[in-house]
Simulated scan of single mutants.
Amino acid sequence: MYEVRGKLHGPNGKNLSVLTVWMTDFETGNTRFITMYPDKRRIK
Rank of each mutant, 00 (worst) to 15 (best):
residue 25 D to S: 07
residue 38 P to K: 14
residue 25 D to C: 08
residue 6 G to H: 01
residue 33 F to G: 03
residue 20 T to A: 04
residue 3 E to K: 13
residue 16 L to I: 15
residue 2 Y to Q: 12
residue 14 K to F: 06
residue 20 T to I: 02
residue 39 D to R: 02
residue 2 Y to G: 03
residue 15 N to T: 13
residue 4 V to C: 13
residue 27 E to P: 00
residue 11 P to G: 12
residue 29 G to K: 06
residue 33 F to N: 05
residue 31 T to Q: 13
residue 22 W to S: 03
residue 22 W to T: 02
residue 35 T to A: 15
residue 6 G to W: 00
residue 34 I to Y: 02
residue 24 T to W: 02
residue 28 T to K: 06
residue 31 T to W: 06
residue 43 I to N: 11
residue 26 F to K: 12
residue 22 W to I: 03
residue 25 D to R: 05
residue 1 M to Y: 03
residue 21 V to E: 06
residue 44 K to Y: 08
residue 32 R to Q: 05
residue 18 V to F: 04
residue 26 F to T: 10
residue 15 N to Y: 11
residue 3 E to T: 12
residue 8 L to I: 15
residue 1 M to H: 03
residue 26 F to A: 12
residue 8 L to N: 14
residue 36 M to W: 04
residue 18 V to A: 03
residue 43 I to D: 13
residue 36 M to L: 12
residue 22 W to H: 04
residue 19 L to A: 11
residue 37 Y to N: 13
residue 35 T to M: 14
residue 9 H to R: 08
residue 33 F to P: 01
residue 38 P to C: 08
residue 35 T to L: 14
residue 40 K to W: 05
residue 38 P to A: 14
residue 40 K to Y: 05
residue 30 N to R: 12
residue 29 G to L: 04
residue 3 E to V: 10
residue 44 K to D: 09
residue 2 Y to S: 09
residue 15 N to Q: 15
residue 44 K to A: 10
residue 41 R to W: 04
residue 17 S to Q: 08
residue 12 N to G: 09
residue 2 Y to H: 10
residue 28 T to M: 06
residue 15 N to E: 15
residue 41 R to I: 09
residue 9 H to D: 07
residue 1 M to N: 03
residue 43 I to H: 09
residue 42 R to C: 04
residue 25 D to Q: 08
residue 8 L to V: 15
residue 24 T to I: 05
residue 35 T to N: 15
residue 42 R to N: 08
residue 27 E to R: 07
residue 8 L to T: 13
residue 18 V to T: 03
residue 32 R to L: 02
residue 36 M to K: 06
residue 21 V to C: 07
residue 35 T to F: 10
residue 42 R to Y: 05
residue 26 F to S: 10
residue 5 R to M: 08
residue 6 G to Y: 01
residue 1 M to A: 04
residue 13 G to D: 02
residue 44 K to L: 11
residue 18 V to N: 01
residue 44 K to F: 06
residue 27 E to G: 08
residue 41 R to Y: 07
residue 22 W to F: 08
residue 26 F to Q: 11
residue 32 R to I: 02
residue 40 K to M: 09
residue 39 D to P: 00
residue 6 G to L: 02
residue 13 G to Y: 02
residue 38 P to R: 13
residue 25 D to V: 04
residue 29 G to P: 01
residue 35 T to W: 13
residue 42 R to L: 10
residue 10 G to T: 06
residue 7 K to M: 04
residue 43 I to F: 09
residue 12 N to P: 03
residue 23 M to K: 11
residue 4 V to W: 12
residue 27 E to D: 12
residue 12 N to R: 10
residue 10 G to R: 08
residue 8 L to M: 15
residue 25 D to E: 10
residue 27 E to C: 04
residue 2 Y to C: 10
residue 39 D to H: 04
residue 20 T to D: 00
residue 21 V to I: 12
residue 36 M to I: 11
residue 3 E to S: 13
